[in-house]
Amino acid sequence: MTVAIRVATANEVPILNAIRTSVRENHMSLERMADYGITPEVIARVITTTGRGFIASVDGVDAGISIAEAEAGCIFAMFVLPDYEGMGLGRLLMAKAERFLFEAGCRDVWLEAGAVEGLRAHGFYAHLGWRHDGLMPDGQLRFVKSRDELVRGPAA
């Protein structure tokens, strides 16, 4: 198995959206994304200005994405196609996104995850050292991580 991660270009927004809309948990359609103001144009602008998108491929198949946005200091997206879960792609994509944010000067970063009970993402983020930090105004769970935690590692 050959895994490669590349920086996404504006021309690859359809790939980012295809992976985002193909997940089982925390699924969101293109229409619902647009309702939240997440359009292809917005994504293209983010990944070519204050953010970066990353695409993980396995044996040439685009299988996972992450998007980090430095101005807001957040992980905007991290998704892996269902058939490619459990291969470590999420961990690799999160590491790329976190590194981008911390190298961009962010000290404390955040992400939000669905508030649905038992969502696997909650355990995944906790395993990577993210701390639950309450609720976002829209009811999503907020997770945070500081640059110091990345350097020292999460507290035991």
Rank of each mutant, 00 (worst) to 15 (best):
E98W: 03
W110E: 14
R20A: 04
D148C: 12
F76E: 06
F76W: 11
I38L: 00
R152F: 13
G129I: 10
V46K: 08
V144S: 07
M136F: 14
R32N: 13
E71G: 13
F100E: 02
G60Y: 07
D62F: 10
A97L: 00
M28Y: 11
T2F: 10
A126H: 09
D133P: 15
V58E: 12
P154H: 04
V80T: 04
E31D: 13
P40T: 07
L92Q: 15
A56R: 06
D148R: 12
P40C: 07
T21A: 06
T9P: 12
P14C: 05
K96P: 14
A56C: 12
Y84I: 07
D35Y: 05
E149D: 15
F124P: 05
G129E: 06
V7F: 12
V151F: 10
G60P: 11
I43V: 15
V58N: 05
A77F: 02
G129C: 08
A113Y: 05
T50A: 11
S29H: 01
S29R: 06
D83S: 15
T39L: 03
A97P: 06
G134E: 03
G90I: 00
G105H: 07
I47E: 00
A77H: 04
E25D: 05
E69L: 02
R20T: 04
M1T: 13
T50C: 07
A56F: 10
L16K: 02
V144M: 05
Q140V: 02
V13G: 05
D148S: 12
A18G: 08
V46P: 02
A34R: 00
I19W: 02
M78S: 11
F100Q: 01
E85P: 12
R131T: 14
M94F: 03
T21H: 07
H127I: 07
F102W: 08
A155P: 15
E103N: 10
I75G: 03
W110V: 13
C106K: 10
S22N: 04
G118S: 03
L111F: 02
G139Q: 01
F102M: 05
L128D: 04
D133W: 09
G51C: 02
R32C: 08
E117F: 11
M33L: 07
L30Y: 09
L135W: 09
F76K: 01
V23F: 02
M94G: 01
V23C: 03
G90L: 02
V58L: 13
R120A: 15
A34H: 01
I15L: 13
E103D: 13
V46Q: 07
I19M: 04
A18Q: 03
A95V: 06
R107L: 14
V144I: 14
A77C: 05
R45Q: 14
T48N: 03
R6V: 15
A104K: 12
N26H: 08
P40F: 06
M94R: 02
M78P: 09
E103T: 10
E112F: 04
R107I: 14
V3W: 08
G139C: 01
A18T: 05
G114D: 12
F76T: 02
G51R: 03
L93P: 09
K96Q: 13
E85A: 08
I5W: 09
D148Q: 15
M1P: 14
R20K: 02
H122Y: 06
F124G: 00
